[in-house]
């Protein structure tokens, strides 16, 4: 695939530092959007009816918006949106008696859908959503740290997942998508999805393999592996994106093509959030995480080289006199020293 290869060449050809910078800037912008929303509306993402309570009604009627407004004026906070003959009416919280009356009115239409959430339920949903997000994120981080055991790569993955969610949430603000239970599920799903390609990348790059003598050829090997991982990873994300895109097309667009189809808000909301999140993940994985890993591997590889060289000398000396046990300790000490020296050497070199 020439296009895929061209993209891979382009991205891997860039400087690691520049690669890391772009996702960070995007993340900062996203945080800015969330902070703005928090200051302006009181929550980072606008809360939908699932969390605030209220009544949502969908009816098919030729009546105009104004006619409907007059008809339903006795109910609190009526908001009417229309798409052709399909009208969506949203009401604020109301008394039980009012609700009975509203239901009576609505059920007289031939085609209707009702959803009613009490503010109490919404409060509960808010608490549980925060709990679920925190628990899911922590569990994911624990799994990642157990799998990789090395702090820098593991932290990079967790950071990417967090960034994906923040960017997806900011995109929700930008397209005026409210937080519903469906979008919460999508954000949670993102935790799982976004980690996939990162795990692939990190596993492939960290794979231990014989180190050749020269630093240059090692870096080339890392790039080679990065390219292979990217081929697999980009294919993965594009299959996922196309599955989610199919969901979006059917849930959101089909209804405008034919009378027969009705929009499915739940699937539409889930797919929109996943699309944003997956796009953010492409950037975070192949720019941020890849950049961090290249940087990290450059350092680590250099340290390892020094260590090997050190061990070699040590071994030659030790083999004459001391037992293997004490040799281990000395080796470890020497390694530490080696790392320090190498770092110092590099700094001086710059």
């Amino acid at each position: 695939m020439p296009l895929l290869d061209a993209v891979i060449e382009k991205v891997t050809g860039l400087d690691a530092k520049k690669l890391v910078l772009v996702p960070l800037i995007v993340l900062l912008l996203a945080v800015g959007v969330l902070v703005y929303s928090q200051l302006a509306f009181g929550t980072p993402v606008k809360l939908g009816m699932d969390f605030t309570g209220g009544t949502l009604v969908r009816i098919t009627t030729p009546e105009t918006k104004d006619e409907l407004l007059a008809k339903f004026s006795e109910f609190p906070n009526v908001i009417i949106r229309e798409a052709g003959d399909e009208k969506i009416l949203q009401f604020g919280p109301m008394s039980a008696a009012e609700k009975e009356r509203l239901i009576q009115l609505i059920t007289s239409y031939p085609d209707y859908e009702i959803k009613d959430v009490s503010p109490l339920f919404g409060k509960e949903a808010q608490v549980q959503t925060i709990k679920a997000l925190v628990i899911a994120f922590l569990l994911m981080a624990v799994v990642i740290f157990i799998v990789f055991r090395t702090p820098v790569p593991a932290a990079a993955i967790v950071f990417c997942a967090a960034s994906d969610i923040v960017i997806a949430a900011a995109c929700m603000d930008i397209v005026h998508l409210e937080l519903s239970l469906g979008t919460v599920a999508a954000l949670l799903m993102l935790i799982g999805y976004s980690v996939d390609s990162n795990i692939l990348l990190t596993t492939k790059l960290l794979r231990s393999s014989p180190v050749s003598g020269s630093k240059k050829s090692d870096m080339l090997k890392v790039l080679e592996r990065l390219k292979a991982a990217m081929r697999t990873g980009l294919t993965m994300t594009s299959t996922t994106l196309s599955a989610v895109f199919a969901m979006f097309v059917v849930a959101a667009c089909m209804s405008s093509l034919s009378e027969y189809y009705a929009p499915i808000p739940l699937l539409r909301d889930i797919s929109i959030v996943l699309i944003f999140g997956l796009l953010a993940d492409l950037m975070n994985t192949w720019m941020f995480n890849a950049g961090v890993l290249r940087f990290y591997l450059g350092e680590a590889r250099a340290a390892e080289m020094k260590q090997r060289a050190g061990t070699m000398v040590k071994k030659a000396k030790k083999s004459k006199t001391k037992a293997a046990e004490t040799g281990e300790v000395a080796k470890a000490r020497k390694t530490e020293k080696g790392v320090k020296t190498q770092k110092g050497g590099e700094r001086r070199g710059r």
Binding site: Q128, I135, A136, M140, L188, G192, D196, I199
Partner: peptide
Amino acid sequence: AEAFNIIFASAATTAVAMLALALMALGTL
């Protein structure tokens, strides 16, 4: 083996994230 390591790790992360959703008491999703 390496392919399966990747798969197990990513399956585990998705599973724990979904577990949190499954345990949400109101259970709509």
